[in-house]
């Protein structure tokens, strides 16, 4: 494997966004790119990352390899990279280590690290293709704000989407709260728009602790997409350039 990223910031942010949710992960490398799928310890949430080969330049992967990496270790090494450094990942066939180099675009500084790999016996889950009943695309900062504000009151949030819009409601010991958003087009700045596409009304309840955690990815993208259907996991997607993505799935709370 040899994969060169123009900006180390992308990998730094991805790892930062998932490291509190999942610890030891296989980075599955093949000629289409680098993928990661992992559940949190309590099997409530699933992280699915895809960094397409087009996000790297150049990208070369001659044989499929799984790089088992501890994300705490990777975080320690990535801390040594500046956001605008050029980052190159390298691994041999049947590797013991993954090699990372960080090159400063402005100076002749080159740093190089090896991280020991681990054997991780990870189960891959089959994520079915789903036609979601409701898809909401909103500013990622807005979604972060809603989850943060409501998590101060309650452990869980009900998300209801109807043709009127989407409503986030919570009930806690000190009282209750809600935030409603309507479809809204911002003509000055499309990134601030709220798009709602609905085929049938949905109402689901989720743990806010996980949603707050997912929002650590907000720095990766101005926009976030929420996909919901009744009685299936919520999909929270942060799109990256070149069709790469970071997706989180969250199992709903089960009704009384």
């Amino acid at each position: 494997l040899e994969a060169r990223l123009e900006q180390a910031a992308m990998l730094k942010r991805v790892v930062d966004a998932i490291k509190d949710l999942v610890q030891d992960c296989n980075f599955d490398c093949n000629d289409s790119g680098i993928a990661l799928q992992a559940m949190d310890n309590s099997h409530v949430a699933l992280v699915s990352m895809m960094l397409k080969s087009e996000s790297f330049s150049p990208f070369r992967c001659d044989r499929n390899i799984a790089l088992g990496i501890n994300l705490t270790s990777l975080t320690k090494v990535l801390r040594a990279a500046q956001g605008d450094d050029i980052l190159t990942l390298k691994a041999e066939d049947a590797p013991d280590v993954v090699n990372l180099t960080f090159e400063s675009p402005e100076s002749d500084r080159l740093s190089e690290y090896d991280i020991k790999l681990m054997d991780i016996d990870q189960e891959h889950l089959g994520i079915p293709d789903t036609e979601y009943a409701a898809t909401i695309t909103l500013p990622s900062s807005e979604f972060s704000r809603i989850t943060r504000d409501l998590s101060a009151l309650s452990e869980s949030v009900a998300i209801e989407c109807t043709k009127e819009g989407v409503k986030f409601t919570c009930t806690g010991d000190i009282g209750n709260g809600s935030v409603s958003l309507r479809q809204h087009t911002n003509v000055e700045n499309d990134a601030k728009s709220v798009d709602i596409s609905l085929t049938e009304p949905v109402a689901l309840t989720f743990s806010l602790k996980y949603l707050v955690n997912f929002c650590k990815a907000a720095g990766l993208s101005d926009r976030v997409r929420l996909c919901l259907s009744n009685e299936v996991p919520l999909l929270v997607e942060y799109g990256l350039s070149n069709n790469s993505y970071l997706r989180f799935y969250l199992a709903p709370k089960i009704g009384d």
Partner: peptide, 14 residues
């Protein structure tokens, strides 16, 4: 964690 669904009951093992 009562009332919390498990992701594996929605997405089967590959």
């Amino acid at each position: 964690n009562p009332g919390q669904g498990n992701i594996m009951s929605f997405f089967g093992k590959k």
